[in-house]
Design a protein around this nucleic acid. Structure first.
Length: 561
RNA sequence: AGCCUGGUGGUGUAAUGGUAGCACAGAGGUUUUUGGUACCUUUAGUUGGGGUUCGAGUCCCUGCCGGGCUGCCA
């Protein structure tokens, strides 16, 4: 089977549809999508799924994808967010070229269309208050009743709408409503509000407008104006589709196809802007870019690569059923990418002093270390080795269980890239805590092999005492301690499920000197420990702060649970 | 309650009337100068009940369960 036949077989339902449309010649074979966030918050992993879907489909089908800011509500929207959105989409690896739009670009046209609807008797100005409108709307089981203002004359509607536009009425006093069907089982069709009065500066249009179109009156028409062929959105917009269709038809404009898919959920995570906002505002995390946040900015600071996120979005698939993805899949994608591209370094989180008794005093030599075993082109580097080194405290056990391959009295281990050593003496403080190991090394084992070919089971990492760089390391764990943070016993909320140990700070870690040359945010591997990157905190100062991106998989720890 | 929508291993996703597959997770193993990686093996699934059909995850009926909808948010 050829590749094209292979890929053809496993398309998700949206791509299947796009392919069918393209082959049937719909829209002259054009494929044009868009990513339409509202600039009222930061982008998160859920948005990444949508971005990858929309931009991905455009790429795969030889089409285009626009970036459009859905800025129809100046109350919530800020330019700060608009800028962050652009930078995040670019960082993820997508390019909208010159096709950067705003719903507000279309306010004049949208207004004209509203007037057209009024002239056709399909929209009216309504004086009902918010509460009254709710009463008139009816409910899930009962039909609504017509607004007493529903049958105003076209002239009166036109005049009133003009006055709304001129700012002659206070917020909330009047709305423009589509005249559809108050008895529709779909509440969105019960004469929905399409324009509301908001006396508020708009980031793009300033004080030009006192009235703003609702989402429903802006979105489909924006799609139409941009020639979008497939308007992909999440499931909660499903009941809006009849209204989307009604507007395109009654306005007599080009009619894109709205298609809905199920949003992404991740266990041990909250994925809504509202909840993330609370985490930030209540100080449970240190801002939107806290490395524990599922925001693109947080993940980026944590050390996630765009490639790993794109890979993840591809692997989770697209369908209509509700889903909760296991974080293990995300971590798998992360480690998979990092394994391939992250340079290796040596470092110890909990330094334990080691003195090599038979190594010459004052001697310093340089040993060769491989930069990336997955990439021969990455080459090698040298690291200092001397009589005094540090190893990780958890790589030594005075009384180890069988199957423990690391250091213990009398057992020989390999210091990665350096020598075999054997612990000959354990030094403790008054409290009985091990504070230093005295070892002997085999001068013949330089580089990690001996002429007699004897094997050692354990290989551990280390740093040279005099040249190592000290640093602070921030170890992150999942932000919530339960898979579904919203599930709370007896009436609390998701903040009750916060993991108190989601951040552990180690102030006295030691890493090889060359770590300071790493670029902020660019992950590297501390061998056997995990992937880390330099945090922007303290950048430029002598202090070094490392974020743990993700730990190594650890089958030893798992086996011992 | 009404309307809409969905239900395939633990999780996610394929199979569009013809061998239920893939990935992650789990278990076991091989390799290994990272207890990493890679590779191999393996456990585990069509929501219940009827029907149509030579043949049903797929079509029909019905039950059950999940999600969404009563903003002048998007």
């Amino acid at each position: 089977m050829s590749d094209s036949e292979q890929t053809e077989k496993n398309l998700d339902f949206i791509r299947t549809r796009v392919q069918t449309d393209q082959r049937s010649g719909k829209n002259e074979g054009r494929v044009h999508t868009r990513f339409p966030p509202e600039p009222n918050g930061y982008l998160h992993l859920g948005h990444a799924k949508s971005i990858c879907l929309n931009f991905g489909i455009a790429q795969e089908f030889g089409g285009l994808c626009n970036l459009r800011l859905d800025d129809t509500n100046p109350v919530a929207e800020k330019t700060e967010y608009a800028e962050a959105i652009q930078s995040d989409v670019r960082w993820l690896g997508f390019d909208w070229e010159e096709r950067f739009f705003h719903a507000s670009d279309y306010f004049d046209q949208l207004h004209a269309w509203a007037v057209q609807l009024i002239k056709n008797g399909k929209a009216f100005v309504c004086d009902l208050t918010f509460e009254e409108m709710r009463t008139y709307r009816g409910n899930l089981v009962e039909a609504g009743t017509n607004s007493p203002y529903r049958d105003r004359s076209i002239e009166e509607n036109l005049e009133l709408f003009e006055k709304m536009k001129l700012g002659e009425f206070p917020d909330g006093s009047k709305t423009l409503r589509a005249r559809i069907d108050m008895s529709s089982p779909n509440l969105n069709m019960r004469d929905p509000v399409i324009y509301r009065i908001i006396h508020q500066q708009h980031p793009k249009t300033g004080d030009k407008w006192k009235i703003y179109p609702s989402y429903d009156f802006a979105h489909g028409q924006s799609d139409s104006l941009e020639g979008i062929t497939h308007s992909i959105c999440t499931l909660e917009f499903e009941h809006h589709r009849p209204l989307y269709d009604w507007l395109c038809e009654n306005l007599g404009i080009y009619h894109p196809q709205q298609i809905e898919f199920a949003r992404l959920n991740l266990n041990y995570t909250v994925m809504s802007k509202r909840k993330m906002l609370r985490l930030v505002e209540e100080g449970h995390v240190n801002g939107w870019d806290d490395p524990r946040m599922p925001t693109l900015q947080g993940m980026r600071r944590r050390g996630y690569t765009p490639q790993s996120i794109r890979d993840f979005c591809e692997k989770v698939g697209v369908a209509k059923r509700d889903n909760v993805i296991e974080v293990e899949l995300l971590e798998h994608c992360l480690r998979h990418d990092l394994n391939l591209c992250a340079p290796r370094k040596l470092g110890v989180l909990e330094p334990l002093k080691v003195t090599i008794s038979n190594y010459p005093d004052g001697q310093v030599e340089q040993v060769d270390a491989v930069n990336n075993p997955e990439d021969p082109d990455a080459g090698t580097r040298t690291v200092n080795f001397s009589k005094h080194i540090y190893v990780d405290r958890n790589d030594f056990m005075e009384d180890p269980p069988k199957k423990y391959f690391r250091m213990s009295p009398g057992r020989e281990v390999r210091l990665k890239y350096a020598y075999y050593i054997t612990c000959t003496e354990v030094i403790k403080d008054e409290g009985g805590k091990v504070i230093e190991l005295i070892c002997e090394y085999d001068p013949q084992s330089r580089g990690g092999d001996t002429p007699d070919g004897r094997k050692v089971k354990g290989t551990i990492q280390w740093v040279d005492a005099s040249s190592a760089q000290s640093c602070e390391v921030r170890l992150y764990d999942r932000l919530f301690k339960t898979p579904d943070p919203d599930k709370v016993e007896g009436g609390g909320d998701f903040t009750d499920n916060l993991n108190p140990d989601s951040l552990q700070t180690i102030k006295t870690a030691l890493v090889e000197k060359s770590v300071i040359e790493m670029q902020t945010g660019k992950p590297f591997q501390l061998e056997r420990v995990g992937y880390f990157c330099i945090d922007p905190d303290e950048a430029g100062s002598a202090k070094l702060v490392l974020n743990r991106t993700v730990a190594m998989r650890d089958s030893w720890a798992k086996a011992n649970k």
